[in-house]
């Protein structure tokens, strides 16, 4: 992975982000009777046939693969909701729509393991792809505004995977900009002698995205 050569850039691989996403709660409809499962992270169940129950995604996938349940697609994973989100994403060029923090990972896991439980799976999938593309394009155009004076970047509603993709690039970019904008490099050009000027002025805080 990109970060491994440089210990300062902590980077998760996509599959590690997926692993984190597996703790998200989803709703399943079991078709078996089973006692409650007592895990360190909590107790789940007991399960009765046709009675919906909430479990972590990893458990849902494990049960689904054994044919013991059907997974109910989350309410945001419907064609109507996603169409709304996509339109809103396209209309507002500077802000991101609220979606689950792990929407990319959750949708991929569900498509891989519970494709038959999703209505209009093909359409939903392409909608999610479109949303991801639109959002990523926004991230890129936001990155264009970075300069040495950026010292806080607000990315509201950005999801885990999206952050993870731009993280190494952004960290290195900011490191480079800070180095070139440091007072040792620039101030000397303005006034050679006076080194007493404090370094507090870093300009106004510039948001990457305005709310």
């Amino acid at each position: 992975m990109a970060g491994q050569s440089d210990p300062h850039l902590s980077l998760f691989s996509p599959s590690e982000v997926e692993f984190v996403a597996e703790d998200e709660i989803v709703e399943i409809v079991p078709n078996i009777r089973m006692e409650a499962l007592n895990m360190i992270c909590g107790d789940f169940g007991p399960f009765f046939p046709q009675i919906p129950s909430k479990v972590p995604l990893w458990l849902a996938v494990a049960l689904k693969r054994r044919g013991k349940c059907t997974i109910r697609a989350p309410e945001w994973m419907t064609v109507e909701r996603l169409t709304q989100v996509l339109d809103a994403e396209r209309e507002s060029p500077r802000e991101f729509q609220p979606l689950p923090f792990h929407y990319i990972e959750i949708s991929k896991l569900l498509f891989d393991h519970a494709r038959d439980d999703i209505t209009d799976a093909y359409l939903v999938r392409s909608l999610i792809e479109d949303i991801r593309d639109v959002r990523f394009h926004k991230v890129e155009s936001g990155l264009e505004t970075i300069s040495g004076r950026t010292h806080a970047v607000k990315l509201k509603n950005l999801s885990a995977m999206e952050v993870n993709i731009v993280r190494p690039f952004m960290v290195r970019t900011l490191q480079a900009f800070y180095k070139h904008d440091s007072p040792q490099m620039i101030q000397q050009a303005d006034n050679t002698g006076s080194r007493s000027t404090p370094v507090t002025d870093r300009g106004p805080r510039r948001d990457l995205r305005r709310r």
Partner: peptide, 26 residues
């Protein structure tokens, strides 16, 4: 060198994401 590092870090994280999305043995 410095620019190439910035460029490569972006390219690698994007390609590992694409690899993950296409799937494969977990």
């Amino acid at each position: 060198k410095e620019e190439a590092q910035v460029f490569e870090s972006a390219r690698e994280s994007m390609s590992s994401f694409r690899k993950w999305r296409v799937g494969g043995a977990r």
